[in-house]
């Protein structure tokens, strides 16, 4: 899998249509954003292949979440381009890039707390439910079939994390770990081509983290999608990521396989400061 890791993708290389499925699912070229006079991210390049698990790491305040916000069009980049499955996301809204195939979770959980677990997933399925507006107002014209299909699909997705029996609970009443899982389920419900996870293991104990690692692999394999994750838990990152990109002060300081990253002096310096010895990055 090492050959699929992130290598800077030549910005003019648009893959021919017949090779569309070999095209990287996500490309960022020379991405940069300024907030007033502050440059939060600068010259960020990233290429993620189909069904690759990639990691984005870096010290606090390095700009990792800003990169996520750029990729999902929460912020519009000041410079550079993002190609999602080959299509430019310039000028698109968050909901439009989601339709193009990118879904995410949030560092500080953002569930629809007062809605049921099932409804949270059904909001994720929104664009997949074929109910017309008149059907919604009258509950005729194929409303019940579409709604039943949505229920089935939502329960199927919840079952992936064995959460189907919590369907009627308000999402806000779930235990912390389940809230994180529900966020992932909701993101998966939009049938993305790439899933962005923002600190999925935050606040989890080692055994939960181990289960999460297994689940992320299952997501990649069963849904056949790429995963890009931000994480501080190095066991998780080193354990499942095929490619890792290290960010510091808004700039990429290293890219490579977990093995390469672990021994990269720049990375060690960023995490531990200068004159560091050992390599427990």
């Amino acid at each position: 899998m090492a050959d699929r890791t992130m290598v800077p993708f030549p910005s003019n290389a648009i893959v021919p249509r017949k090779d569309a499925d070999k095209r990287p699912v996500l490309e960022a070229h020379h991405l940069g954003i300024d907030f007033g006079g502050l440059t939060a991210v600068e010259d960020f390049n990233l290429t993620i292949g189909r069904s690759e698990i990639a990691g984005l790491i870096g010290p606090n305040g390095a700009g990792k979440t800003t990169v996520f916000n750029l990729l999902t069009s929460v912020y519009q980049p000041t410079r550079g381009t993002i190609l999602l499955d080959g299509y430019d996301t310039k000028g698109k809204n968050s909901f439009q890039v989601n339709k193009m195939g990118i879904a995410r979770t949030f560092q500080n959980i953002r569930l629809f707390a007062n809605m049921s677990v099932l409804d949270n997933v059904k909001v994720g399925l929104h664009n997949k439910i074929k109910t017309s507006f008149p059907a919604s107002l009258t509950h005729f014209f194929g409303y019940s079939q579409a709604e039943k299909a949505a229920d089935r699909k939502a329960l199927e997705l919840l079952d992936f994390f064995s959460m189907a029996d919590m369907r009627d609970m308000p999402a806000g009443a779930l235990p912390y770990g389940d809230q994180r899982r529900l966020e992932i389920v909701r993101a998966l419900a939009t049938q993305p081509k790439i899933l962005l996870l923002d600190e999925p293991a935050a606040g989890m104990n080692p055994s939960e983290t181990a289960r999460l690692m297994e689940n992320i692999r299952r997501i990649r394999d069963e849904f056949d999608i790429a995963v890009l994750l931000i994480e501080h838990d190095m066991n998780l990152v080193m354990g499942i990521c095929e490619g890792i990109c290290v960010l510091n002060y808004g700039r990429v300081i290293a890219k490579g396989t977990p093995r390469q990253i672990k021994s990269n002096p720049k990375v060690i310096e960023a995490y531990l400061g200068k004159k560091a010895e050992g390599k427990n990055a």
């Binding site: 909901f95 989601n98 809605m115 993101a187 939009t190």
Partner: peptide, 12 residues
């Protein structure tokens, strides 16, 4: 409930 999350799952 949460407008940012709603946009992130494709709600206009």
């Amino acid at each position: 409930e949460n407008a940012i999350a709603a946009s992130s799952v494709g709600i206009n």
